[in-house]
């Protein structure tokens, strides 16, 4: 536990300060459209960069990961819920792995 402690403190501290400082300090709204737009796109950029290329090797080997990624993309495109997409991706990876082992 102790080796994880600094990480937890840092994460929690940084995340809290981000949430706390504007609400307690700022009384005026940010005017810059660039900053507003930037903040709006940040979550998408982060998720895009985090997902690729990591997803291609996330389920062990390349083939089962690729198959599962394809299934996940299709389900996400059909706007299924987070839980459905995640579960079917896992199931698909598992089944593909089983078939490959035959």
């Amino acid at each position: 536990m102790s080796e994880y402690f600094p990480y937890i403190i840092i994460m929690a501290g940084v995340t809290y300060l981000i949430r706390m400082i504007p609400l307690t300090c700022f009384q005026k709204e940010l005017k810059s459209p660039f900053i507003q737009s930037f903040l709006y796109y940040v979550p998408y950029a982060v998720l895009g960069a985090m997902t690729f290329p990591a997803v291609f090797t996330s389920a062990g080997d390349l083939i089962s990961s690729l198959t599962a990624t394809l299934v996940a993309c299709l389900l996400a495109y059909k706007e299924k819920s987070l839980l459905i997409v995640a579960s079917f991706a896992c199931l698909c990876a598992y089944v593909t792995n089983l078939i490959l082992m035959l």
């Binding site: 998720l47 996940a72 987070l82 995640a86």
Partner: peptide, 15 residues
Amino acid sequence: SAMGIAIYGMFLAII
């Protein structure tokens, strides 16, 4: 091991 893809499945469902 198959569960490893769960998080990315979620991300895909978000983006």
